[in-house]
């Protein structure tokens, strides 16, 4: 499956959302309970909620933008574009962007959840897998932006590390 630059934006947005928010939930919940099922339930609930809000959010935002573009084109053409190829392509873009955003979010959520689903149950493994995924996302980001791959990976991993440190600090405060 190939994505254009517009969809690539939603792959990155959704993946970062799903990956880091779910990792945050897992790190937070694993402090109070070492039970696999509780961590999986909390993480999975978060993953579903994120996927739905990201997907619906994109649907609503893209509908607004695409409708605005369509009206602008209609004004230039002095005609309505209802039931034309232009309108059908616009609707397809809205649905594709919403599915890409929501889908990327859900799939990325499964990465930190995977060790808990498989019964390994380790926050360290979740963090490690998340950082590996951020490296892959950095490479993808560098590829679509035609920028330096190393810089792109560094930015992505730096962001992830910052969030992990913040969540860990909150955990320490909670434990104290």
């Amino acid at each position: 499956m190939s994505f254009n630059i517009e969809e690539g934006r939603y792959v990155i947005l959704g993946s970062i959302d799903g990956l880091l928010a779910t990792l945050g939930i897992i790190l937070g919940v694993s402090v109070v309970s070492a039970s696999n099922s509780i961590v999986v339930s909390a993480g999975f609930g978060g993953a579903i909620a994120l996927a739905l809000t990201n997907g619906l959010g994109s649907y609503l935002a893209e509908s607004t933008i695409e409708h605005g573009k369509l009206v602008k084109t209609e004004k230039s053409l002095l005609r309505k574009l209802n039931n034309t190829y232009v309108e059908s392509q616009s609707k397809k873009r809205i649905v594709k962007d919403a599915l890409t955003h929501g889908g990327a979010s859900f799939l990325a959520s499964l990465v930190p959840l995977a060790p808990w689903i498989l019964g390994v149950g380790s926050a360290f493994v979740s963090v490690f897998l998340s950082l590996i995924t951020l490296v892959a996302l950095g490479v993808y980001s560098g590829h679509i932006s035609k920028q330096n791959y190393i810089m792109s990976v560094a930015k992505m991993v730096g962001l992830g590390t910052l969030i992990i440190i913040t969540v860990e600090l909150l955990r320490i405060v909670h434990l104290v």
Partner: peptide, 15 residues
Amino acid sequence: NYDLVQQTIENLGGV
């Protein structure tokens, strides 16, 4: 067929 050509153009958003 002019009507068909015109219809095709209009379906593609043209005038």
